[in-house]
Nucleic acid binder design. Sequence first.
DNA 1: ATGATAAGCAACCTCCTGATTGCGCATTCA
DNA 2: TGAATGCGCAATCAGGAGGTTGCTTATCAT
Lengths: 108, 108
Amino acid sequence: MLNPSAADPAPIFAALGDRTRLALLGKLADGQARSISALSLDTALTRQAITKHLHVLQDAGLVASLRVGRESRFAARRETLDEARAYLDRVSAQWDETLGRLKAFVEG
Amino acid sequence: MLNPSAADPAPIFAALGDRTRLALLGKLADGQARSISALSLDTALTRQAITKHLHVLQDAGLVASLRVGRESRFAARRETLDEARAYLDRVSAQWDETLGRLKAFVEG
DNA sequence: ATGATAAGCAACCTCCTGATTGCGCATTCA
DNA sequence: TGAATGCGCAATCAGGAGGTTGCTTATCAT
C-alpha cells in the first residue's frame, strides 16, 4: 500500500496544521498544477522553505508532484482531504449520539 | 473574543495532528467529562504528558476544563471541531468547482 | 555554447514539541 | 490528624520543525 496514513489521520492533520501549507493548498484549490517557483511567488519565504512544505504535504498525501522538464509541478490530491473530512465526520457523528453533554460536564 | 483561532484553522489542525490527542478526543467522544487521572489510564505516558496534551487541545478550543474538587475534568467541545469540519468542507467545495484536474496536471 | 531559469542537496541554526522527573500544594478519606 | 489521591509547576532533555544560505545540477532559450 503506497497510500500514506491510511488508518491514521494524525499525519494528515499535522500537515494541515500550518498556515503556510494551508495557503499552498489554497493556491492549488483551483485544480491547476503549479511549479515550485510559481508557488513561491507572493511569499516572504524562500523557495527552499516552500519546497519543504510541499514535501510535507506530499508525504501526507495531500498533494502529488510530477516532474515536467526542469520544473516539478504540484497538484492537490482529493482523496486524502476526503479522508480527513470523513474522520471528522465520524467523530462528529459519534458526539451526536450523546446528548446532555453539559449536564455530564458538571455531574461527571 | 475568547474563542481561539476563530479565523485561522491551522492551530486546530495542529492540535489534531497527534495520535495521543486524537485518542484523548476519542475517549471523550461519549460526552462524559473525565479527570486527568482517568484519561491517563491505559496509557504508556505519564500523567504530566497527558496534561500537556490536554492543554494543547484546550488552547485549540477542542476541549474545555472545569475544576471540581481536587480533580479537573475535561470535556470535548463541539464548536471547534465543527470549525475544522466547515473549513475542510469549504476547501472541498472549492475543489469541486474545478473539473479536469488530472488533465491540467499534465498540461499545466 | 552561453546565460538565465528551475530545482535539488546539504549544512546549519533556532525554537518548539513531546516527554520525563522531582517536588509542592490542595483535597478527600479513614 | 495523618495518609492517600489528584493535580500544578519547574527544570531538563532529545529530537524534530521551520527556515536560511550556499552550492551544484539540469533544462530551456538565444
